[in-house]
Amino acid sequence: MTTVVKRTVTALATTSILALSATAATADTWRYAFEEALEDVQGVFAQKFKEEVEANSDHQVQLFPYGTLGESADTMEQAQAGILQFVDQSPGFTGSLIPEAQVFFVPYLLPQDTEALGEFFRTSKAVNEMFPELYAEQGLELLTMFPEGEVCVTTQEPVTEPADLNEVKVRVMTNPLLVESYQAFGATPTPLPWGEVYGALQTGIIQGQENPMFWNWSANMYEVSEVITCLGHSNFTTAVMANKEFYDGLSGDEQQVVQDAIDVAFDHIINYQQGLHEESIEKIKEAKPEIEINVLSEEQRQPFIEAGEKVEDRFVEMTGDSGKAILDQMKADLEAVTE
């Protein structure tokens, strides 16, 4: 699809929703956009949320998977404007809006264990008490955050040390700290809208990108890559938000319906992800037997861990006392669930 056609489709879709937005706060139908397909992790979460809301209220939930309303920046604008009632978006994209949210991209901060991560997001003071205030300042009600899986890097050549990433153009989200991370790792970080990534890999404009393994499978990243390397540096995090004016306008009972649906969907998605990483690897290997999939050893990770320490310092420089307080609290929260 050409850029002109893409923009036209996006404009038409947005215009049609704008026509409905006047009654957003009282509409029987609530609109919810997310960054993945229906069968992907965010889509599975959204479907469970929809199921719970519709089973316990008179409201309907209309789901908008990735691409139906434009790129991530478009859906965030629509959520802030009240055109959308709910949006699921990674801190990777909201990092420029809420700088402290970039903490999730401090390398080697989060563990890879799904169960420990689920408990962290369920109980973390940083996530559940500190972040909501920051999101509220942007007109957003933070409903939950949840992990989506270990992030692995696709490239054309094997990666066992930072030197192997020298001059390798790796696509990253438009997130300043993620740019800092890949610079520290020795690569050339290249921010690109997601819709352009497959073609850029195919034509050699970029040589790599990072994503959870399920997404490397479902988005066909393995087709335009020769190697997938798990550095152990990150676990993809996403956040579900509501337009704050809409949420505050709900009755107490309606807010409870939303919160209950979020809680059920959260438990569902943590259980759903058990084994998903490994299943995705098997699917990729079956589809492309010649692909090389590597998991770095602790010894191989050490230079990347050392490079990540500089990124943590940079995060504190970028976000000041607020970011430092959140980072410290997250470390305490993580220690509590990993002991």
Rank of each mutant, 00 (worst) to 15 (best):
M213N: 06
I269Q: 09
T2I: 04
E71K: 04
G118S: 11
E35L: 13
Y32S: 10
M76P: 01
V311F: 10
N243I: 09
D248L: 04
A81L: 11
G199V: 07
A307L: 07
E312Y: 06
S225H: 01
S21K: 15
Q62I: 00
A37D: 13
N56S: 08
C230D: 05
Q329P: 09
I83V: 12
L140A: 09
P191R: 08
M76Q: 14
V224Q: 02
Q300F: 07
Q256H: 03
Q255C: 05
L250N: 00
F105R: 10
Y32G: 04
D40I: 04
E100H: 06
I305Y: 04
I262G: 03
V295F: 14
A81I: 05
V257T: 12
P162A: 11
G95R: 10
T10W: 01
N243D: 11
S181T: 15
T238G: 07
E133W: 01
E180W: 01
D113T: 12
V224E: 03
V127N: 13
Q80S: 05
L84H: 07
E278V: 09
E119Q: 15
V41Y: 06
Y222E: 00
W215P: 00
T8W: 00
A242T: 06
V179G: 06
D328C: 08
G43W: 11
V53P: 07
M330P: 09
E317D: 13
F45R: 06
G308M: 04
L18A: 03
R171E: 08
T203I: 01
D164E: 09
N271R: 03
G199C: 00
Y272K: 09
N56T: 02
L38D: 12
I228P: 00
